[in-house]
Design a protein around this nucleic acid. Structure first.
Ligand SMILES: [Zn+2]
Ligand SMILES: [Zn+2]
Ligand SMILES: [Zn+2]
Ligand SMILES: [Zn+2]
Lengths: 140, 140
DNA sequence: ACTGTAATGTTATATTATATCATGAGGTTT
DNA sequence: AAACCTCATGATATAATATAACATTACAGT
């Protein structure tokens, strides 16, 4: 998946610097959202400078370029499962195991845009987070 | 609208105390989301005790009973436009004027639930926030 | 070497939210 | 009425999340 991202960076003339790459890797290794200060701790463990702006800048960059998404209801961050592609993600947040999965449900966002268009509102971006129980947890 | 709420409170044996009512009224008088500390200031202006827990407790109560919704992407709160009814709201947040409107689009949430069900995820609650430009702002 | 831009370092502070324990106001039971 | 229970509020402190501001460095283009 880093391959896609490398290509995207070259094409768009942006740089995945060491700290940005490290944050991305940390998020890709997790199935739960990580808070900025958790990320900061992990960065410190990995030998990076550990002041808050370091983490927030890396996260801002990653979110801006679509490599990472912010989970608003948790103030946490997750790696995108389809980076580079322009999409309106839907997140499934499990109340039992805290896992966050990005659903491939792209239809929803356009349905939503259309429904809201009828009210005169022009949608530019949607935040869709579903809380519930994931299939793994449902089995137990 | 307070009528519905009064009835709901009686039916459910819960109390809309002065501070809770005041917070609700403050939110009903606004078309934008208000942050907890903004509410705290307004409470102080109205002669109430102004420590953070006062506002958060009132907000927790109001959200818990569906009289108020939290806008996760803003850490702000808005009064519900259909309190008492069990619903999955969709919010339209204008980037220009900051107004927050609750859309009557109830279909979206059930569509979403069904789409996610296919992945094995059982939706209990959805957070849907659409950012864009409201009809008023579009005209200008 | 000079210059412009993006990135990082560093310190301080702003904003949002909760933990904890004490006090009070109303009902219910005895 | 007194004792008791429950819910709500008062009050202090602190945790968790996020940004402002300014200094320094890296590095590409001239
Ligand atoms: Zn994504
Ligand atoms: Zn789970
Ligand atoms: Zn509502
Ligand atoms: Zn507007």
């Amino acid at each position: 998946m880093i391959k896609n991202i490398d290509k995207y960076c070259k094409d768009n003339n942006i740089k995945l610097t060491p700290v940005r790459l490290k944050v991305l890797e940390l998020l890709q290794n997790e199935k739960c959202g990580l808070g900025a200060y958790r990320i900061l701790d992990l960065l410190r463990d990995a030998g990076f400078n550990s002041q808050p702006p370091v983490a927030y800048r890396a996260l801002d960059f990653l979110v801006e370029h679509g490599f990472v998404h912010k989970i608003e209801s948790q103030n946490s961050f997750v790696a995108c499962t389809d980076p580079g592609a322009h999409h309106s993600p839907v997140f499934m947040i499990c109340k039992k195991c805290d896992s966050v999965s990005e659903a491939p449900a792209s239809a929803t966002a356009s349905d939503l845009s259309e429904a809201l268009m009828a009210t005169g509102f022009k949608v530019e971006q949607t935040i869709i987070e579903a809380e519930g129980v994931c299939s793994t947890c449902a089995d137990t």
